[in-house]
Amino acid sequence: MENGQAEFDKLLRRYLDGTSSKAGRKQLYELIVSGDFDAQIERDVLNSLKNEIDHPDSASEAARMNKLYEEKIKSEISQTTTVHFQKKEAGSQTFFRFWAIAASFTAMAVAAGLWYTSFSSERGTPPLSAQTERPASAPQASLTRFLDKQLVHLPDGSTVLLNDGAELTYDNDSFGKAAREVNLQGEAFFDIRHDPARVFVVKSGEVKTTVLGTAFNIKSLPGNNEVQVTVARGKVSVGTGSRTYDLLLPDQQLTINTANNTYLKKDLKSSVATEWQKGFLIFDDIAVGAAAEKLYQKFGVKVSFKKEMLKDCPITASFLYNESLDHILEVISTIHDFRYSYVSDGSEVVIDGDRTCN
């Protein structure tokens, strides 16, 4: 294992330095896929990302993040998969929606996974998971695609929480022009920003879900003739290009059989349809103090601050894989240069730091 560790360290260092060869990247991806080095990958790459964007000003932060993406990640990801760093101004700083993915090292993991799937297919061997097998589609330069479990921020400010195996796409050139239209395969929860001038449309095969601003869950699994739409807030119209099935109100569900074009409407608590989100922890541009309250609710460990001003620092991150409290605290601490420690009995975490977030 020691020899393997030394080899992994060398390959990872060369990858991050931009000096790795094609053979070296292949070997690194094989080691990543093995899962034996997950803890080190997370620590090393998180530190690398931190060093790249340490104390940037708001004017240059986007350029730095995109430089990191362009130079170290983009070339390893499929050309049909577009990754965007979305920013939102808050005071004098810019905060990136991609932080949780970067902090959890998803980008390189995706690269390794896509490489393995492609490599296996070329050799005629099955890929890691049948879940990744999807019909090939013609590449579109303006198509933006998001795959698998993650929180997506759309250009209009709406959010989409994708479940395992889901795929969300939209045309970046036309989205928001006359309408806001996306395509969904799999399951997702939509929280749509109200815009009376532009309807929001979700296409799931032939089924179209149309809203102005509301929250709802759609389940449209590949190979399944059923599409389920469940409303949590607002009103939702469900139909096809030629007919409207029904109008749904909160805590109502419509199940459409696309094979025979029939449907069934019933009352159902939206919390039942969204049970798959249980255990997710999402900080969507909230103060660290509010995040501390969520951590207490989930883990039963109080989070306190040595300096009150640290509570106001903003955090945007998604933890969708039952991450540990330590993992989450490491991410928060890395973003803001915090330090944390446990009190002796482990019932409380104390966060300290020297930076201000104003």
Rank of each mutant, 00 (worst) to 15 (best):
A6M: 09
V152C: 09
M108R: 12
V331A: 11
Q40K: 10
E133P: 06
H153Q: 11
S304T: 07
V272E: 15
S34I: 00
R193Y: 15
N225T: 04
I77S: 11
Y69H: 07
S20T: 06
D354V: 14
K219R: 15
R233P: 00
E70A: 09
L128K: 09
K266N: 06
E181V: 13
Q27W: 00
A59F: 15
K72I: 00
G157D: 06
L249I: 03
I256K: 08
S344V: 04
A107Q: 13
P250H: 02
M1H: 10
Q277I: 02
I351H: 02
G234T: 03
N224V: 14
L295V: 07
L161M: 12
T262S: 12
Y15P: 15
S78Y: 08
D337L: 04
L12K: 09
L268Q: 12
A112M: 06
I315Q: 03
L221W: 05
A290H: 04
S270E: 01
R355C: 03
Y170M: 15
A109I: 14
V303S: 05
A197L: 07
L254V: 07
N358Y: 12
G18C: 07
H336L: 04
Y296W: 01
V211M: 12
W276D: 07
T258M: 05
F216G: 08
T82A: 15
Q86G: 15
K26G: 03
L249N: 10
G157T: 06
Y15G: 12
K74M: 06
K177E: 11
E181G: 13
G4I: 01
P56S: 10
V199D: 09
N261E: 13
Y170A: 14
V207I: 11
V331W: 00
D312S: 13
T169S: 14
S324M: 04
R180F: 00
K149W: 03
A287P: 14
S158W: 05
R13M: 03
D191P: 07
R233W: 00
T262I: 08
T144E: 13
M108G: 01
A100P: 09
L28P: 08
A103H: 14
F189N: 09
I218P: 11
H55T: 07
K219S: 14
E348D: 04
I335T: 12
L31I: 03
L212P: 01
N257V: 00
V182S: 13
A317E: 12
V238I: 11
D191G: 08
T209W: 12
Y15E: 05
S20Y: 02
D251E: 15
